[in-house]
Nucleic acid binder design. Sequence first.
DNA 1: TTGTAAGCGTTATCAG
DNA 2: CTGATAACGCTTACAA
Lengths: 348, 348
Amino acid sequence: MFPSPSVAMPDDAGAQGAATRMRDVAQRAGVSPMTVSRALRDPSKVSPAVLRRVEEAVRAVGYVPNRLAGGLSSMRTNVVGMVVPSLDNSLYSPTIQGVSAVLHAAGYQLMIGECGHSPQGEEALVAAFLAQRVAGLMLHGVHHTEAAAAMLRRAGIPVVETGSLSAKPLDMVVSYSNEAAAQAMTLHLHRLGYRRIACVTLPSAGNERSRDRQRGYRAALASVGLEADPALLMEMPPGLASGAEAVVRLLQSPAPPDAVFFAGDVLAAGALFECQRRGWAVPARVALAAFDDIDILRHVVPPVSTLRLPRAEIGRRGAEVLLDRIEGRAAGTVAVDLGFEIVQRGST
Amino acid sequence: MFPSPSVAMPDDAGAQGAATRMRDVAQRAGVSPMTVSRALRDPSKVSPAVLRRVEEAVRAVGYVPNRLAGGLSSMRTNVVGMVVPSLDNSLYSPTIQGVSAVLHAAGYQLMIGECGHSPQGEEALVAAFLAQRVAGLMLHGVHHTEAAAAMLRRAGIPVVETGSLSAKPLDMVVSYSNEAAAQAMTLHLHRLGYRRIACVTLPSAGNERSRDRQRGYRAALASVGLEADPALLMEMPPGLASGAEAVVRLLQSPAPPDAVFFAGDVLAAGALFECQRRGWAVPARVALAAFDDIDILRHVVPPVSTLRLPRAEIGRRGAEVLLDRIEGRAAGTVAVDLGFEIVQRGST
DNA sequence: TTGTAAGCGTTATCAG
DNA sequence: CTGATAACGCTTACAA
């Protein structure tokens, strides 16, 4: 049985609406739908001649498989969900790209959702992802609602958290230690000779990472016998303007610091620009250090000392351990500490 | 018939694996699955008593609907796909957030894919999204492969392009005019008295937006009778370092410009930092203008003149017109020009 | 207001 | 290597 010769076959030109099904491809190729399914998923399972006919038919009718049906039937999908606090902040993009690269190479799709730094937002996204029956989930937050945790537990899919190492993990964790990093930078400043070291973090309310960094800062001071002056520990919202405001407030205080460690976002860059505007010499009048190796810090004058965090590597390794579990290559849970590096530049 | 009283009912504690189905909820609530379906999608269609029982059962078993099944059955999903060239670049995030906000408010999910500035990457993502039977698609690129265009045509779902106004649209467009914006900024520089105006864009190969901006620049020069010196039109890859390199090359050339218009990415910021390093006064020695109102340009010294583009509004309006079509409130295609503004600052 | 029956388009399973 | 058949979990259409 052959399909009628392609006489007066409009192929697909302006066809619109009803999607073609596997059955249409099968008919045209003169085989059963099951054979089409096999040809598409594992070409080695059908004869070369049939494979050719199927491929031709797929092209001719412009067949796009229906993964809703496929997923329903096989009880598995090739979609991985990822929840990030925000997309404004280019901090998360290296991680996203790492995840994306590994996933695509393995034939998976990435679905990203933005939860706006709120556990409720995260819960809603987790529910939505679970409803799509994602094969696994990457979470940046480490603070979850009880409901979200319960859903995740019941769903029984692999989950990787990437935001912090200190939290009691839901399942797997791939990250670096916020506390150790903050401690290391504070000690570095001390080693360079600074003795009144201020620290500015993002608001710690509901932000485990900020709290970890504050803890690291305090631990460092304690270990070298410096007093932890509460006036030297500030919290500011994200943004360049916040960094500017913070440095002004600190330097105009009765007992100004000789170094400021900005443990988050682009605060350090904002502070540097403010120093440029006011003619405050960096690092002579005040040394400035940052937390993340964003491109800009390398290009400003003077370039800003900072921590290099393994953002992209976190994404890659996270996706890898997730895939290992999804595809059954590994079973247990893992916790990976990817470390960090101090980058010493002109600002300190 | 009532479910057995919750004696020795472990509820969900550590249950894991087999997801609960609508049938389980129905059984527990003592109704048919159809009633559960109704209760979940339109509570007004079931009696209050039943509704309460269903809600309780849903909670008790931790039911998460299976949208693969729902979508397959109803032939529609609540997922919208979005393809962006890159996620490094925070330029796209306002648009993504605009889309995300409107979609979530309407109960839709956003699925984001990164195509790496390549039409082939876009094609792959379009295929993947279509396979998930997304309800609609947002595309930033305006240059598509023939195959991608054909798939989109056949799928018959609404598509919004947001990258540029000039392209012959696939379906709907919501954007601003890259050409008009570049022209306006060039004219603005001329009006301020600059007479040798250079322009630096991203590589134009395969980038319609860069070509549009170059066209606008040339049109502006022509309209005021300035010669278009080819030495003053450069193309550079994205990044702060590129901007630095460009300004050095231009200013050290035999006939240096008195103003440089950086029509893309963070080039202008990179150039400004280089000027700071070299002690080149801005704007006295050279004026600098940028294309996009990124936060940093407002905070550097001097602040950089630029164009304010309706990035977030593009996302919101784009999502709105997409939803109008998805939900059948509108039929035809639309093209929306959201305009732009010139922001004059100290760098010019 | 509620329930029954018949798919939706795939894939798992088992026969040939 | 290929095909028939029965799910997968939900919704549409109709009936009660």
